[in-house]
Design a protein around this nucleic acid. Structure first.
Lengths: 133, 133
DNA sequence: TTTTGTGCAAAAACTTTGCAACGTA
DNA sequence: TACGTTGCAAAGTTTTTGCACAAAA
């Protein structure tokens, strides 16, 4: 189970870190290939899996598209634009509070959750406004 | 865009309704094929999509497995067991409250959300207990 | 030297699509 | 009749896997 450090693994981690937003495996691959053309897509997938397993990346399961990866591991949440499918980081002023003592949650020893908001991003709102005029 | 009622569409809706839990497209197909062997998997997928579009079913995007379908359209949430991947309906005593006036939520015109809890289901808890003994 | 990781290609898992025939309104 | 729906097969998308070789520890 001991993990070795390889150039490829570092490239994958760096790629997700540098990426604006939340890249898919394909996007990670594309961004690495530019500078390191010999990397294989299988290696990208394998390293993404390792990095998720070791807690260095978060895997985001998104309705309607391939998994995305997030270098920001700390607690935050996301919103999905229902028009353009843009996936947005959200910093809530008042974080969502869950009462983990709720009966159903205790029964299933729930200790974590993910929350995905859906809305209309500012860009799409602007589009809609223009069309109305 | 007008939708017609077909035997197949009704079979798909019934199958999801009768299913214990939250079937995948594959499971819906398997349960229909027993009594209606000529149905095609494409038809199941197409009807699931129509039924989701028309609000008669909910599509549940689950990390690590195929989409599931839910005949209970009303507001509720789910938990995923981190050991057996069982997908569980949750009835919270105190529903999760979101402050939709939060700055980030207003900016993106967020009007809805889904929440997925992760925990250990009673069955897996029992398993773990047995192993310890 | 002993694993573990890599690249490649093939396969697996899941879902959609083109098309001719069919069924519903 | 008109057009939405079906079954089938093919193709599309995303991810994993088998294997021989290469590279870390």
């Amino acid at each position: 189970m001991g993990r070795r450090n390889t150039i490829q693994k570092q490239l994958v981690l760096d790629a997700v870190n540098k990426f604006m937003g939340h890249p898919s495996a394909e996007e990670v691959y594309n961004s690495i290939v530019e500078s390191y053309p010999d990397i294989s897509k299988a290696t990208v997938y394998r390293n993404l899996n390792h990095l998720v397993d070791s807690g260095q990346l978060l895997r985001l399961t998104v309705p309607g598209s391939a998994d995305k990866y997030d270098a920001t591991v700390s607690n935050h949440c996301h919103a999905l634009c229902k028009y353009c499918d843009k996936f947005i980081d959200l910093e809530l002023e008042n974080p969502v509070v869950i009462d983990f003592n709720d009966k159903a949650l205790k029964e299933n020893m729930v200790d974590d959750f993910v929350i995905l908001f859906t809305g209309i991003c500012p860009d799409c709102m602007e589009q809609k406004r223009k069309i109305k005029d």
